[in-house]
């Protein structure tokens, strides 16, 4: 991932909004791009993550605990790989062309869990086309920003949803 986020005063290279340039999420590479955070004496949040990320991580919404066979879903999509450190799976219940309900499973870091949690809130009730418009930038904005090296988590979330929707449409 290129260091493309706008320079901000936030610590830890937060990306609040980012160009929708395609980010390779198949396996996030070791991002050794030099830090561009501005030096500051700050008394910011206690974590590297925003309070919203923290809240979604500590109290994730709509996750599917345990065996997914107990959840009657119409479509599912999986992206990522545990070998890369992140894997996400979205399960959709679809009625009248809308996402009636959504559940997810994630293996990954706090921002991966928060991204899938946020996404599940963002797309519930939307039509499939509307849901596909919820991209990494929208997820990241909703979360109050993500550290630059964690932006790929929002990309993975979007791709998991897109894979689930494609899975549904391919069934037709």
């Amino acid at each position: 991932m290129k260091n493309q986020g706008k320079r901000s005063n936030e610590p830890h290279n937060f990306i609040v909004a980012q160009n929708t340039q395609k980010v390779n999420s198949s396996c996030a590479s070791n991002q050794s791009t030099p830090s561009n955070s501005s030096p500051s004496t700050y008394s910011g949040p206690s974590w590297v993550y925003s309070e919203i990320v923290k809240e979604h991580f500590l109290s994730p919404r709509n996750f599917l605990m345990g065996d997914e066979s107990k959840y009657p879903y119409d479509a599912e999509g999986t992206v990522g790989n545990p070998v890369c450190g992140d894997q996400m799976r979205m399960f959709l219940q679809i009625a009248d062309g809308r996402i009636a309900d959504v559940k997810w499973k994630t293996y990954g870091c706090a921002s991966a869990i928060a991204s899938t949690s946020a996404l599940s809130e963002l797309v519930k009730g939307k039509t499939l086309d509307e849901a596909l418009q919820v991209g990494p930038v929208e997820i990241t904005k909703f979360l109050g920003g993500l550290p630059q090296h964690k932006f790929h988590c929002s990309v993975l979330g979007h791709e998991a949803l897109a894979a689930a929707i494609a899975n549904f449409r391919n069934q037709r």
Binding site: A28, N30, F57, G85, Y107, G108, A110, H149
Partner: peptide, 29 residues
């Protein structure tokens, strides 16, 4: 099936401070 950073931060929320591998590597994916 439980990722290290998530374990670390859930523990942090419960006031138990540990690390994933080496601290120098945090920020490294």
């Amino acid at each position: 099936a439980a990722e290290g950073e998530s374990i670390q931060l859930y523990l942090d929320a419960d006031d138990v401070i540990v690390s994933t591998g080496s601290a120098c590597a945090s920020g490294d994916l």
